[in-house]
Design a protein around this nucleic acid. Structure first.
Lengths: 263, 263
DNA sequence: GAGTGGTCTAGACCACCGG
DNA sequence: CGGTGGTCTAGACCACTCT
């Protein structure tokens, strides 16, 4: 392993056995702190699938010995991953790779709430999967190879027994080979991504607009045509930063709303 | 000062001269870490107005001596305040009380972006202020005394020269005495709150719905009646956690959208 | 009781800013 | 150049979980 960044503060005798692996997104030049290098090393093991979701990581003590840095530096790296919800830490139990369980889906990725502010997970009442050619923009955004296909998923989803949401999902057929084997798709589709396709969605960006329901929307949602509906365009990103899912939802917002926290 | 929490780890000789001041929101019972007590002590000085926005705080070293805790503990307290955007830290310069400058308003509190994803601050093209009686729910939410009045502000705001947004703001007349002296209100109204009314907005919760434009909306926004518009209901909270502002916006979303990051 | 993460302390050096 | 926050280390004790 190549040493770097000595730059090694403290009383320390240990010269860190941490390879440089710089190039953190969103950092300016000049210098990469040791704990960020450690963070990246740990992240690489998650990206490669060496540590699957749900796995118990080695303890801080073990990692600090393995990586040749102090326990405090390992702690800072794990705290950074924890802040990004990539790992979950439990006092007395250990540090685990975050899973897309129902709670995470509900609080990180599903922003529809009822008028009391409670979030309710929707049930899927209709689901369709087909292979198709991408549009130019889909191909560009998903970084597809020339002539690479996409999967198109259409789902209708109900809250409290009423169909409230119609969504179309677009995925690279190369990244999700044999997706059709898993039909019918589970309600929690991000759990499917991570269990069968080594793809963990960690972050998403949504664009919201008010639009008029199309004739098809009206049919699906049981409302009149031209009814105002909330259109949500989502781009979802994996651990390595790649855009892996495009999604467009149209949602009735009479009994429910989209909740956004500004902080 | 009353000691508590000894509970004092480390080699330390120092018994912390930090009063208990427990009761952190969202904490379970049992115990309050020292750095959270320090955080609350610092926060109290901000709430009281003893440290105004823009103020340079004492250095970590000075604070650690003043409060009788280690520099590392002061650091953790300041890092927590920094994570909540309550203070801003600059290496080599010091720690400052956060201000509602244009950048903060743009990135923390204004979520409308153009199709390239760039956020543009809107200009106010019409503004009206009047004193009025609150509705029952307004009185309850804002915690008004019986017969306490409210201010109602109506503003029309333009992006790139086109009126895109109509908003109504409701404030306690008691909390904002003599607000009418400041007419015409500045475009950055949160800066007004903090400069003249010792009220710093730190957090807000928004509820989004797609609704049909009313006749009045259509007139203001220059669109047809029943056009789908994005309705944004905001509740804004001050440093002490009190709800201080209610706001309803209606926004055209043909050239712009509401951007929401899920992470 | 053993092991984990969480807190607290102490001290050193580094990167950055201003005068 | 002195002062600030940022990083790194080392070691102790605490709260929590599981066996």
């Amino acid at each position: 392993m190549t040493d770097s960044n000595d730059g090694n503060g403290g009383t320390g005798a240990a010269t860190a056995s941490v390879s440089s692996s710089s190039g953190r997104a969103g950092m300016q030049l000049g210098y990469t702190p040791l704990y960020m290098q450690v963070r990246q090393q740990l992240l690489d093991k998650l990206i490669s699938g060496e540590w699957q979701p749900g796995t118990l990581l080695p303890s801080e003590q073990q990692l600090s010995v393995q990586m040749g840095v102090s326990q405090g530096t390992v702690r800072k790296a794990l705290d950074a991953l924890s802040a990004d919800r990539i790992v979950v830490r439990h006092q007395g139990r250990g540090t685990f790779v975050a899973e897309h369980d129902q709670r995470r889906t509900l609080f990180q990725f599903f922003k529809i709430a009822d008028d009391k502010g409670d979030r309710v997970l929707p049930e899927t009442v209709y689901s369709q999967l087909k292979r198709a050619e991408p549009s130019a923009s889909e191909s560009r955004l998903l970084g597809l190879r020339p002539k690479g296909d996409v999967w198109r998923i259409v789902r209708h989803r109900a809250l409290k027994g009423r169909v409230m949401l119609s969504e179309q999902i677009v995925l690279s057929a190369d990244r999700f080979p044999g997706l059709d084997v898993h039909v019918p798709l589970p309600n929690n589709i991000y759990e499917l991504y991570e269990r069968h396709f080594v793809t963990t969605v960690t972050r998403a960006a949504e664009q919201l607009r008010a639009v008029a329901a199309s004739a098809e929307d009206a049919d699906v949602l049981g409302c009149s045509e031209h009814m105002p509906v909330l259109q949500i365009d989502r781009q979802a990103f994996a651990l390595n930063g790649a855009l892996v899912e495009l999604r467009r939802s149209r949602c009735l917002t009479e009994q429910f709303h989209y909740a956004s926290d500004l902080r």
